[in-house]
Amino acid sequence: MTIISSMQLLKFAGRVPAVETTYSNLYPSFINAYPTDRTFTKQRDNSELWILTMIDHRNNLTNAINFVRASLDNGLRTQDWAADFSRGGALDAHTYAVNWSGIPAGVHTIDIQAAVSAGTATWSTSVDVVQVYEIDGPAILVGTPTLAPFATVNPSLIPTGFPQNNMFTKELADSEIWAFMNIGHMNSVAGATNTIGMVIDNSAMKTFANDFAKGGNFKMETMIWNIKGLSAGQHSFDVEAAASSGTTGTFFVNNADLSLYEVAIV
């Protein structure tokens, strides 16, 4: 059975105390940002973990990058994200997610960690939260890194070749598909936009677009798509990409992960 019908919130924690904190340690040297109470108990061996984290942060330097890392059991599993800033001092709020399978039942720890490319990052007081969910998965499609960086100068979306094995089977007609994708990308030109599209059956599409404060900055982002109304049976899932006109975007599909789940709606 691949349909998610069980979901438990194992951990809901913010930063304690909830005050602004600053970080200036340079990537790849991460330090713990939150939470203080970092333990949770996974109930079952064959379930999966969803880690959802929200942060609201800024950097005092224009064009700097703030890095965020989720670390399970002191580095046993890690997932990195990165965001750049077009104006020093401006706030930027993000939601990041990662799915981990193969984690045994028992007590574990989760840390959300921070690093900067330059300058000093300040994490706001209002948002920062980490949530750990246990779900009875598994994913019905998993895309693992397979290809080298993929560059495009075409303003129209074109296939990236990710994921390579892209067929999945939906069992129920009235369920939803949830797609979780982390993908890294950059653009050669400051102020350019990269667009990433999630494609079902070569037609249905949801696009995400993000601009860049500085040419060559790297972003690692989470994209989530909830898809209703998809019939039961076999379907395909593709990732397409484009850069804004006159620029070159690079999509690091060798640094991407994709998980599709079928979620029963009750």
Binding site: M54, L91, D92, A93, T95, A192, T207, A209
Partner: peptide, 20 residues
Amino acid sequence: NWSDVFAKGGNVKRQQMLSH
């Protein structure tokens, strides 16, 4: 609350905003 900053005026951003 979500907040975001623009690298260039006029860019259209399409982002996920998932609340806690």
